[in-house]
């Protein structure tokens, strides 16, 4: 018998020691029987429901607050289920013109997203395909996102005062575009990387100009990535608070800033806070619902591929 064969036999004895089954000390762990498995599944389901209820409760509370009447809001103990679908809280926002802040948010978020997507995708294409500036330029661009908004906004504020751009749409849009660009470039670079370069090469051989390659090959191939990135960019701008707080006064106040106007030292305008928050939150929920499989990739800045 070969040496290996001898080893194999002695090895069997050695292996028997750590295995309690062979030594007869205790019974080996058994797999769960079907009934136990059902119990475990039921417990997991219960835990899942509990977790979901806990995480959704604040949103539920916000929603019912928005529909409560003044009496219900200031009832003690609190009312968990409003008596009627009362729309007067929203009606007040529309009557007094407060809803215009939502419109401002919409204008700012839509136009800055559109501009940032076009510029950012161009830049991403140049970085990925032509490798201009190498990895350093790409890292510099993403590092722009690291700066705390409160820190950037301070000198920007001084600059905007000098330019007369404070409380203007174009001023806010320029800022939001610049603020969104690092994210757009970073994400689109990843999506463009996923496009087989052969498609572009074959388009070039077919006689497409560079712009045609961009419009006819790159944009259509990256369209789901473009869409997902655009939705995220929209949500970031929509949800911004710091820039709007510092750089708007009366003309382009956004809904997040408007919510803080309802905070009072002693008494809060609960109904308005809730109704305005609802108005500002529903579009985000709808936007995010369209994302599906690109959600996690966008959220993790590309760390997880879809």
């Amino acid at each position: 018998m070969t040496e290996a064969g001898v080893h194999a036999r002695t090895g069997t004895e050695a292996a028997a020691v750590p295995s309690p089954a062979a030594a007869g000390i205790e019974r080996p762990a058994r797999r769960l029987r079907p009934r136990r498995r059902t119990v475990v599944l039921a417990l997991r389901l219960l835990a899942a429901i509990l977790v979901t209820v806990v995480f959704l409760f604040p949103i539920y509370w916000l929603a019912i607050m928005a529909f409560k009447t003044a009496d219900e809001i200031f009832a003690y103990p609190p009312v968990w289920w409003p008596g009627s679908l009362n729309l007067s809280n929203f009606a007040v926002l529309f009557r007094d013109g407060d809803w215009e802040t939502v419109r401002n948010s919409l204008v700012l978020a839509t136009s800055s997203t559109a501009i940032a997507m076009v510029l950012g995708t161009f830049a991403a294409y140049a970085l990925e395909r032509f490798r201009i500036g190498g990895e350093n330029l790409a890292v510099w661009i993403i590092s722009q996102r690291m700066l705390p908004p409160v820190v950037i906004v301070f000198p920007i504020f001084l600059l905007y005062v000098a330019l007369g751009w404070v409380d203007t749409f174009h001023g806010m849009i320029v800022l939001y575009v610049a603020f969104s660009l690092p994210y757009v470039i970073w994400m689109m670079r990843g999506y463009i990387h996923d496009i087989p370069i052969e498609l572009e090469e074959s388009a070039e051989l077919d006689g497409c100009s560079r712009w045609q390659i961009l419009w006819r090959v790159v944009f259509p191939m990256a369209r789901t990535g473009l869409f997902a990135t655009a939705v995220f960019t929209f949500v970031f701008v929509w949800n911004d608070f710091v820039f709007a707080l510092v750089l708007t006064r009366t003309e382009v106040v956004t809904y997040t800033v408007q919510v803080t106007h309802y905070f009072g030292g002693q008494s809060n305008f609960w109904a308005k806070i809730a109704a305005m928050s609802m108005l500002g939150t529903l579009p985000v929920f709808f936007a995010v619902a369209t994302l599906q499989r690109y959600f996690v990739r966008g959220l993790s800045m590309g760390a997880v591929k879809g």
Partner: peptide, 19 residues
């Protein structure tokens, strides 16, 4: 459903917890 808290504006999240 569990995604929803994360996409709300942080300011609104603060306001919700104020409520």
């Amino acid at each position: 459903l569990l995604v929803l808290p994360t996409v709300i504006a942080p300011l609104v999240a603060g306001a919700v917890w104020r409520l």
